[in-house]
């Protein structure tokens, strides 16, 4: 997933409206991209702040005032002659149609001139030079100037994510190493990893979470690098 895709889908993701697969891809991208993660955190912080605002009920007089102004506008509209009302209805769309018509005429003119050009007529020099391509400028979001408090609050979760990633990288090497293991050893390993992982995922964010991830990583190192699992169950 690219950064622009991530940022386009971020609002839907935070609203919980993104499909599972797309949401998973976005989560994966956020783990690896500090810039997008910072934007996501800023957005989340803003949403949390908005949610924490007390509900505000508008005074009943406000709606009454709006209704009165609408009624006055309708009464004034009724006073206008019919031709002015029709003109007012069409006026906003006239420029759009005019522009569309002009563009269509230009395209038709170009096609007609190409079709009716003499075969031996040399092509205009301008046609050989590459047409300048107007590339839409890449929209670079302004740097997120997160407030230090939000940044500090978000850090433990980011660090936890880094540990999770380290554990996943180690775990990805398991299949190759496990080839030398017996079924019982593989089963014991899977059970232990699942238990430690659950513990790490459920640990309180911050030091408890870091320690739990470190515990899993130490176990993985022992099992995969030092073959502690294999040795405990007898050499394979």
């Amino acid at each position: 997933m690219r950064c622009e895709d991530c940022r386009r889908d971020l609002t839907a993701y935070l609203d919980g409206e993104l499909a599972d697969e797309r949401g998973s891809a976005l989560r994966g991208h956020l783990r690896g991209c500090a810039e997008c993660r910072a934007i996501s955190d800023a957005e989340s912080t803003l949403r949390d702040g908005l949610r924490s605002l007390p509900p505000l009920d508008p005074p009943s007089s406000l709606w009454a005032g709006v209704q009165a102004q609408l009624a006055a506008a309708e009464a004034a509209d009724a006073e206008k002659p019919r031709w002015r009302r029709t003109l007012a209805r069409w006026l906003p769309v006239v420029p759009r149609y005019a522009f569309g018509g002009l563009a269509a005429a230009a395209v038709a003119l170009v096609i007609w001139s190409r079709l009716h050009r003499a075969p031996d007529e040399p092509a205009p020099v301008a046609a050989l030079t590459p047409t300048p391509v107007i590339v839409e400028a890449k929209v670079v979001p302004p740097p997120v100037d997160l407030d230090a408090t939000a940044d500090l609050a978000a850090e433990p979760a980011h660090v936890g994510d880094e540990y999770r990633q380290a554990a996943d990288e180690l775990l990805a090497q398991a299949p190759e190493i496990q080839k030398e293991w017996s079924d019982a050893q593989r089963q014991a390993f899977a059970t232990k990893v699942a238990a430690l992982r659950t513990q790490a995922e459920r640990a309180e964010v911050g030091k408890p979470s870091r320690r739990a991830w470190e515990g899993l990583i130490r176990y993985l190192e022992g099992a995969l690098i030092r073959s502690d699992v294999a040795l405990a169950g007898g050499a394979p």
């Binding site: 100037d145 997160l146 407030d147 230090a148 408090t149 940044d151 500090l152």
Partner: peptide, 16 residues
């Protein structure tokens, strides 16, 4: 810590 202050301008962590 950095005090939370909603009325102040945002303060980047790298600036302190």
């Amino acid at each position: 810590a950095v005090d939370r202050d909603r009325e102040s301008k945002p303060l980047a962590r790298s600036a302190v």
